[in-house]
């Protein structure tokens, strides 16, 4: 019986998976990563919390979503770095002058040549440009092409196609009796009445379970007329300055 494969600083793969759960980055320069996802590294690498004077220019270039900047870290230096997330499957994807929208909790790391923006869909982030990024999923990722309707819990993200719309499949829940059925559950509901519907050309990424990964906050959006916002307008929220870095509570870890 042979032991497991032993890796060292030279045999670790270059920007590729070590096993389905760990990804090795050959760092020479900078990468963005989600807080706390580095498990080990060789070489000289520094980790900076975002909101740093020296990194302001980089962040202005790659980050257009300053309100949640506190969840991201810049790794800077030379060496090999291993990334992993709670033993979920990790995969790398290459974008070539493209765009991809992904659930905020699933994105692990990306090259600064990509720029990260808040999606208009709450809880999702959009990456635009050319470069590599790493995303985690609960079980391997399945790629499908629209037109397709998907279960909300299985959706990881989508590339190049228009944002989805909601689809309700509840013909049998109409009328008075149907209303009673939907409201009380008497007669049974399938639990699959609501889907996301994708149309147009592109690729949809699905994970192979319906267990969601914990979301990370994507930050608030300016409270303006015409801006779809995650918080209903009648809920009290702390006033924010445009471009403010994180909420005060979060800055102080409360």
């Amino acid at each position: 019986m042979n032991g497991p494969v032993i890796h060292d600083a030279h045999t670790l793969p270059v920007d590729d998976n070590v096993n389905p759960y760990a990804f090795s980055v050959d760092l020479d320069g900078q990468w963005f990563l989600q807080k706390g996802k580095m498990i080990a590294y060789y070489g000289q690498i520094d980790f900076h919390g975002i909101g740093h004077g020296r990194l302001d220019r980089l962040i202005a270039h790659s980050f257009h979503s300053p309100l949640h900047a506190a969840d991201w870290v810049v790794a800077e230096g030379r060496g090999k770095m291993l990334l992993a997330d709670r033993s979920f499957d990790v995969n790398s994807f290459d974008l070539e002058d493209g765009n991809l929208t992904v659930r905020s909790g699933n994105l692990l790391a990306f090259q600064p040549s990509l720029s990260l923006k808040q999606s208009i869909v709450p809880g999702f982030l959009t990456l635009i440009g050319t470069g590599k990024f790493v995303a985690a999923s609960n079980g391997p990722v399945v790629f499908v092409e629209p037109p397709i309707r998907v279960d909300p819990q299985a959706l990881v993200g989508w590339a190049d196609c228009p944002s989805p719309c909601h689809h309700y499949d509840h013909q049998y829940l109409t009328g008075v009796l149907g209303g009673v059925r939907a409201f009380t559950g008497i007669g049974g509901t399938s639990g699959e009445e609501h889907q996301f519907e994708f149309v147009g050309a592109g690729t949809v990424l699905l994970q192979s379970t319906e267990q969601l990964m914990a979301e990370i906050a994507t930050g608030g959006v300016p409270q303006q007329a015409g801006v779809p916002s995650a918080t209903p307008p009648n809920q009290p929220s702390m006033p924010r300055m445009p471009g403010q870095l994180g909420d005060l509570q979060r800055r102080f870890g409360l």
Binding site: V5, D8, A22, G36, I39, A40, Y42
Partner: peptide
């Protein structure tokens, strides 16, 4: 291990830094 473990070799010229939780 929680998930397949990665075995990393340390040599005098390539020291290794590890996250305590991993």
């Amino acid at each position: 291990s929680d998930g397949q473990a990665v075995v990393l070799r340390v040599t005098p010229s390539t020291p290794l830094q590890v996250d305590p939780g991993a």
